[in-house]
Structure formats: structure tokens, C-alpha cells
Amino acid sequence: MLRLAVSSMFFHEYPVDEIFSSIEEAGLTGVEFWVETPHYWLRGRPLPELEAAVRAHPALAPLTIHAPVLDLNPCSINPRVAAASRQYAVEAVELAGAVGADVVTVHPGRRTARRPPSRYDYEHFETYLARLRQAAGGTGVKVAIENMEPKVNSLLCTPEGMREVLDANPWLWFTLDVAHAMAVSNDEVFRYLDLCGDRLANVHLSMAADRQRHLPVAGSPQACAVVRALEERGYRGPLTLEIEDQSFSHPLSLEEKVTVLRDEHRYVAWCLS
């Protein structure tokens, strides 16, 4: 059975321990902790608090970490923005080592202007990867780079582009974002699996419809097809629900969020039955 986790950002407005308790109550077996989870981020990223939550909820270990990305861009034309973005990613790798997380998901960055990436942007990208490689060396933490939506200024938004980066960086891993791939087509998900599945370390599972992203998976035949494909290919890493809580018709209470996750869990289990 795949390890079903959820992004901590689904519980955007709650304290860290309450997030972990709610995920465990829903029957999930993992959590992807976004460093920018507000209660943690806005209070200065208190490491002892996260360590305590991990110790109190061993059923959710090992967790994964998502490096900070909001307002950040490691390939920014602004050198101070680029430097800060890289440093936050490095600190996310260090955090993973401190709390026993096995995977850190990072975004590749983008060209600042809404134009195709240039040589300058790819040079920044190489600098970024070098910093991450140095940070991860000897820690046992897998750094996994995520595929982005197909936008004109995206650096990594095709299976071929991802394969090229993975081949050039044997130490690097891959986080498949299903909704980002589905922005192209349902088949694009399987092209990523065919070309890059050997380096898969994390999967962000959610659906896409029209212009909406990160929708729940319960009831979706496309989600079932992805889950079954992962199982058939022998993937045993985290399967991380990445659900946008604002996509629902009303603000969800804590109890409703737990119910949503129970429904998601039942559906994924049914897909594998």
C-alpha cells in the first residue's frame, strides 16, 4: 500500500501539533510539512515545536518537507531575491535532516519576465542546484525537484526537460505534481512516469479541471489511473494529497477537513483494491 500523506497547507490556519493530530485522526500515514505553514513560519520557524510534533506522532514518520516558495524565485533577475530563495531552500534541507525527513521538495524557479527562459536563467538554475547538492551531501535527505505548470517562463514543465536535468544531476530526485502535468493533458502524467519514474521520490496527488488546480481526488477516474500506475510500477514513496482548501464551496471547519481526508483515503484505498 502506498503511504498516503497530505500537505500541511491544507490546514492553513491551525497550529503545528493540531495539524499533525488531525492528519493522524483522518487515518493518513504521512505529512508533507510546508516550511511556510503560517503558524510555524510567522513565529520564526521554531524547530523544537516541529521536533515535538514529530516525536508525538510517530505514525506519520518519516515526514517530507516542502521548501519555501511563496514570494521567492531562485532564478530571479534580482540577485538579492535569488540569494534569499536559495538560502531558504538550503535551510529546508537542513531542517529535513534535523527532524528526520527523507525528502525535500523544491521548485525550480522561473524567468522573472514572462518570456521563455534565457541562458542567464539557466545559469542561475545551475547555481541553485549546486547549493542544494552541497547542502544535501552526506545527510541522507533526497532533494526532489518538482515539475511546474506549462507557462511561458517556466524552467521545468515538460517530461523531456525534467529528464535532461535528472541525467545531468545524478544526485537529484523528482517530485511529480499530477495537477501541474494535467494542465497539459491526462496523458502527460504518464509521460512523466515513463521518462522520469526511476527517480521518483514524492508525488503530489490532486486533480485539475478547467483553470482550477489541486482539487480533491475522490470520485476521479483519472486519479485512480494514476494511483494504479504508481502501484504497478512499484513506487513505494509518499503519495501526498495537495488539496487547495479554498476550492470548496465554503470555508471548511477542522472537522470537515478531517472528513475530506477520510474520503480521500477511502477512495485511494478503493482504487488499489
Rank of each mutant, 00 (worst) to 15 (best):
P79W: 14
E160L: 14
L70W: 13
P116E: 12
S249D: 14
L70C: 11
A201D: 00
A168R: 14
C271L: 09
S253Y: 06
H250I: 04
E51I: 01
A209S: 10
R115H: 08
V268R: 10
L60N: 09
G138T: 03
L239N: 04
R163S: 06
P216Y: 05
P108K: 14
V165P: 03
L254G: 02
V178W: 07
D71S: 15
K257P: 04
T64W: 00
A181M: 03
M182A: 11
A130F: 05
A59Y: 04
A56V: 00
A53T: 03
V69Q: 10
K142W: 01
A101F: 09
A26H: 06
S154T: 11
A26C: 08
N73W: 13
S220N: 10
R233D: 01
S85A: 14
H66K: 06
N202S: 11
L47W: 12
A67D: 00
L155P: 03
D102E: 10
I19Y: 00
R133P: 02
C224Q: 07
Q222K: 14
Y128E: 05
D194H: 09
R133G: 09
A61C: 15
G97I: 03
T240Q: 04
F33I: 08
H39T: 13
L239H: 05
L172I: 06
D102S: 09
D187Q: 14
V93E: 07
S21C: 07
L60I: 13
P238Q: 09
A181P: 04
G100H: 10
H124N: 13
L272S: 11
D17E: 00
G44C: 11
E244I: 11
S154W: 08
R86K: 15
P116H: 11
E123W: 03
V54K: 08
